Computed example of a mutant assay.
Amino acid sequence: MFKQFISTVPGADVYMIGSFLTFFFFFMLVGLYLLIADKGHIQRMGRLPLDESTDAGAPVL
């Protein structure tokens, strides 16, 4: 089925390469963000759903 898709759709290879590059760059940007991000902020956000001391309506700064 996949070979039929490639052979019947003109320019399918361009779409496949474009989608791969989009995924790859997005994945790399998220990974870079996680390496650079403040670890304290990530830990606070990770504990947020379990923390009962904060008000649900108040924004967390």
Score class of each variant (00 low, 15 high):
Tyr15Ser: 04
Thr54Ser: 08
Ala12Asp: 01
Phe5Lys: 09
Val30Trp: 07
Ile36Ser: 12
Leu32Ile: 13
Phe26Glu: 12
Phe5His: 12
Thr8His: 07
Ile42Met: 15
Asp38Leu: 04
Thr54His: 10
Gly18Trp: 03
Gln43Lys: 14
Arg44Val: 01
Ile6Tyr: 00
Asp38Ser: 11
Tyr15Val: 07
Glu52Pro: 01
Thr8Val: 11
Ile6Asn: 03
Phe5Ser: 08
Gly40Thr: 05
Thr8Ile: 12
Ala37His: 10
Gly57Leu: 04
Leu48Ser: 09
Phe5Pro: 00
Met1Ala: 15
Phe26Thr: 14
Leu50Tyr: 13
Leu29Cys: 12
Ala58Arg: 15
His41Pro: 01
Leu35Asn: 14
Arg47Lys: 15
Phe20Met: 04
Ile36Asp: 05
Gly11Ile: 02
Phe5Asn: 07
Gln4Leu: 11
Phe25Leu: 14
Met1Val: 12
Leu34Arg: 12
Leu29Asn: 10
Leu29Trp: 08
Thr8Ser: 13
Gly11Met: 01
Leu34Trp: 05
Leu48Trp: 05
Asp38Cys: 03
Phe25Ala: 10
Phe24Lys: 06
Leu21Asn: 05
Phe20Cys: 02
Ala58Gln: 14
Val60Trp: 03
Gly31Asp: 03
Leu61Thr: 08
Thr54Asp: 04
Leu50Ile: 06
Asp51Phe: 04
Ser19Thr: 10
Ser53His: 11
Val9Met: 10
Leu61Trp: 05
Ala58Gly: 03
Lys39Trp: 03
Thr22Ile: 13
Gly57Lys: 06
Ile17Arg: 01
Pro49Lys: 02
Pro59Glu: 01
Leu29Tyr: 07
Ala58Leu: 09
Ala12Gly: 03
Asp38Val: 03
Ala37Trp: 07
Thr22Glu: 14
Pro59Trp: 03
Gly46Lys: 06
Leu32Thr: 08
Pro49Asp: 06
Phe25Met: 09
Ala56Leu: 10
